[in-house]
Design a protein around this nucleic acid. Structure first.
Lengths: 140, 140
DNA sequence: CTGTATCCTTGGAGATACTG
DNA sequence: CAGTATCTCCAAGGATACAG
């Protein structure tokens, strides 16, 4: 049973298709897989496993399947033993490379600012707690 | 205790700072909050809750805090009763608007292709299963 | 109103062993 | 080699009630 979908894009609606697609590509692993296939290269299952640190067999298989289903990735099986399976970006998948790179470029480019903001925030919270403790002690 | 960080950006390493930052902005709610604040508007807690369908108090608070900590969002408290709290994008946060919009534009722009790819995939899987069943029946 | 604290549930994800 | 199946477990997240 399908949920009713609307035609206009309103990201703030839960059943907005754009939002759903967005969630598919904004997960933890999809970007990394896209980067790995970026240059039109093909990769095998085991290669991903070695390349992308921290990903498990399960998540890799899951993410690749979902990407294949959404038309981002092509999966080619060579019927040899032992089996060889190669993954590559589809033309559609390649159109996603640029936006994704823009995002990672942002991450890298603004790393210092983010790091500093964090430090300041944590510092603020820290002294704030100290102040509160001091106040409490004072009141006794 | 901090994990040791490297200086060059290698997204495929688990402790890559860029990757960590990327994960922070590639979650389910951060993009929606950014879109909501996009035009330099300010928003209150309750307004987010009404605007962003499906988000819970808990996730909203959590995400806003994290964004504040990372310097993306400014939180201003007006000491009145009942309290008023306004959220807006920081200059750093605003630099993220464009890349994010590019991503949602991609999602919207390629919606038909994704939808079609899904249908085809599901169809393929479906008939494949039917074939397998038929073969099994045949063999008896 | 803007949150936080608490409880509770579920399913997301790891580890392992197994199969084609 | 490339996965899948199974088990297990933790923690993300929802609902609710409460506090400042």
């Amino acid at each position: 049973m399908e949920t009713k979908q609307q035609t206009q894009p309103d990201l703030f609606r839960a059943n907005c298709l754009s939002r759903q697609v967005l969630e598919l590509i904004a997960d933890q692993w999809t970007p990394l897989i896209i980067y790995a296939l970026e240059a039109g290269t093909t990769m095998r299952f085991g290669e991903f496993l070695k390349r992308i640190e921290g990903i498990s067999r399960k998540m890799l298989a899951q993410t690749l399947r979902e990407m294949e289903r959404n038309g981002l990735v092509r999966r080619v099986v060579y019927p040899v033993v032992p089996p060889v399976v190669e993954y590559s970006l589809t033309p559609l998948g390649k159109t996603l490379v640029e936006p994704m790179k823009a995002l990672s470029a942002w991450a890298y480019g603004h790393l210092p600012e983010v790091a500093q903001a964090r430090e300041e925030y944590d510092q603020r919270v820290h002294t704030q707690i100290q102040d509160e403790v001091a106040t409490l002690v004072q009141q006794r």
